[in-house]
């Protein structure tokens, strides 16, 4: 089966700035793929390279096996849901959704019928006559999605689509996006800086930093077996320790240890509590172990020592993940 999108050594440099640097990537047909990274890590530039708003300065991009360099955005069978929706303010919802068909020369009756169908798909049937400005953030989000789906693209790109929504709405939209993607069998490429969102929604995640992909894998892979210190720290705030202190590997290597795997143990090593935060289900302890700072999440039912006191801690060495790469 042909991959939906492939990058071969793709770079996009803006003068001295290497926004995307020698990235290799393949996104499978029908998968929900997340690009995760802090701002400025190159994930959005990658998305814009797929959409055609940017052209690579080196390397090759293929969309379903067809070479994409030099092909303008309006000739690609790829559609985008933009970060702040980018709905056309001078059109109502129906005209917004039907825009893709209008520029293709589809007749008015036909494209309005199709727009209504697309709106029903995102549960906004009957909202066609409204102005974009009259809708709530979540509704605008759905209109943007309907607009992107009307041209029946094979790849849908989503640029931080949930960033502007409040927490509750975001969780609801996450579920709906996932359902819609499965039902339509389309390839979704999703850019986010929110690790929870990436891990919970995507089939596979690519973690970006400084224009390069740090690691690609399933959510479980990335969470349990981070490749680099950056991935360990960025995805789920793992403790990154020198391997010998963690009790595995050899000196010079680094290991990651999840905060929830650190337990209070009277027979364990002595550390100093430097911070204590009650979070409801868990208590978060900031610890100092032989000069190395460490975070532990302790179930709330256990008593925890106060700031300045000593805490005896241990962890199961099997839970420590030794990192393959140094950086």
């Amino acid at each position: 089966m042909t991959d939906a999108v492939t990058f071969q050594g793709v770079s996009r440099h803006f003068g001295p700035v290497k926004a995307v640097d020698a990235v290799d990537l393949s996104i499978r047909d029908g998968e929900f793929f997340a690009m995760l990274g802090p701002s400025g890590s190159g994930k959005t530039t990658c998305l814009r390279l797929i959409a055609g708003f940017e052209q690579p300065t080196a390397g090759h991009i293929a969309i379903f096996g067809e070479r994409a360099e030099g092909v303008p955005p309006y000739l690609r069978n790829v559609n985008t849901v933009f970060q702040n929706y980018a709905l056309f303010p001078h059109m109502n919802v129906r005209e917004n959704v039907a825009f893709g068909l209008r520029v293709k020369g589809v007749g008015k009756a036909e494209r309005h019928r199709a727009a209504e169908e697309a709106l029903e798909l995102v549960e906004l049937g009957g909202y066609g006559h409204r102005r974009a400005g009259e809708l709530s953030g979540g509704q605008r989000q759905r209109v943007a999605l309907a607009r992107a789906l009307i041209n029946k693209p094979r790849v849908v790109l989503l640029d931080e689509p949930l960033g502007a929504l409040d927490l509750k709405l975001r969780e609801q939209m996450q579920e709906e996006l996932r359902k819609l993607q499965r039902a339509l069998g389309l390839t979704f490429v999703f850019v986010t800086h929110d690790q929870d969102e990436a891990l919970s929604m995507a089939d596979r995640v690519a973690v970006f930093a400084e224009g390069k992909i740090q690691q690609i894998g399933t959510s479980e892979d990335i969470y349990r077996c981070p490749n680099t210190r950056f991935v360990a720290d960025f995805v789920g705030s793992s403790n990154v320790l020198p391997a010998d202190l963690a009790g595995v590997g050899r000196a010079g290597q680094w290991a990651s240890l999840r905060p929830e795997d650190v337990v209070l143990d009277p027979a364990g090593r002595e550390a100093t509590v430097t911070g204590r935060f009650f979070h409801g289900r868990v208590t978060k302890l900031s610890l100092d172990l032989a000069g190395q700072s460490l975070t532990a999440l302790i179930p709330a039912r256990e008593d925890t020592p106060d700031v300045g006191e000593a805490a005896r801690i241990s962890w199961d060495p099997a839970r420590v993940h030794l990192m393959e790469r140094e950086a």
């Binding site: 959409a51 708003f53 955005p73 309006y74 985008t80 702040n84 980018a86 825009f99 293709k104 041209n151």
Partner: peptide, 19 residues
């Protein structure tokens, strides 16, 4: 982003300007 959106949906330069 509006111009990007129009191009993304298949409008060429002239259509983007006009619509």
């Amino acid at each position: 982003a509006l111009i990007d959106a129009a191009m993304d949906l298949g409008a060429d330069g002239v259509q983007t300007f006009r619509l």
